[in-house]
Simulated assay, not measured.
Amino acid sequence: MKAPICEVCLKTDDILCPGDEKKLQDGVISELDVKVARFLYKLLGDADVEFKKAVEAGDLIVIIVGEGQVALVIGKGGKNVKLLMRELGKRVRIIEDTKDVKKLATDLLIPARLFGVNIVYKPDGGQYYKILVPRTDKQRLPASPEVLEKIISQIIGKEAKIALA
């Protein structure tokens, strides 16, 4: 399994090696990344999975894995997700790593539908992503629009807003 921490740190529960400790201090990885990486390693062992990052907002944790690996991480019947939720004490969504904001939003907002993603240019020269969701799908969102906006913004590194159309 590939993770943001080394294999030795994956196998130990209490301490990090100096290299990974420096990553943690510098903000390259978070405590959540370490916790999720270690738990995924316990669940999946040396499976061919790449854990990229974990993002948290509100009562939702989003785990980002390599392309095409979502089903393997979810496990048969969602078994691994249930174990992750019990371990972390929050709801968990697993999505694949992508640079395409529309695909990211689609994966994250399922079962709600997506009308589209627009880039809005502000008068001050800044910009943000406006994610359009049908008003009738508001109840189908996996979390509140505010929580989802925070998560998407953290993943893409730019401001994102969810608009009900």
Rank of each mutant, 00 (worst) to 15 (best):
R91P: 03
D137Y: 00
L114R: 07
E87Q: 14
E149S: 12
P145W: 04
V65H: 03
G126P: 08
I95Y: 03
D100F: 12
V133C: 12
P142G: 01
L109G: 02
G58E: 00
I131W: 00
P123W: 05
K82F: 08
L132K: 15
I74Y: 00
I110V: 13
V120I: 10
K103E: 14
I64D: 01
D137E: 02
K138S: 14
K103V: 10
I110T: 13
F115D: 15
A57N: 06
D137S: 00
A71L: 09
I152V: 03
Y129P: 02
E87W: 11
G116V: 12
K53E: 10
R91I: 07
D59F: 03
A57C: 04
I110K: 13
G89T: 13
R86P: 01
L141T: 00
K138P: 06
K102G: 09
R140Q: 11
E146H: 13
L114W: 05
A71R: 14
E87D: 11
K99S: 11
V73S: 06
K90N: 07
L104S: 02
N80S: 14
L104T: 07
P123T: 10
Q139L: 15
L72N: 09
Y121R: 15
L84E: 06
I119K: 13
K79P: 07
L104N: 02
L84F: 14
L141I: 02
E146G: 10
N118T: 12
R135M: 11
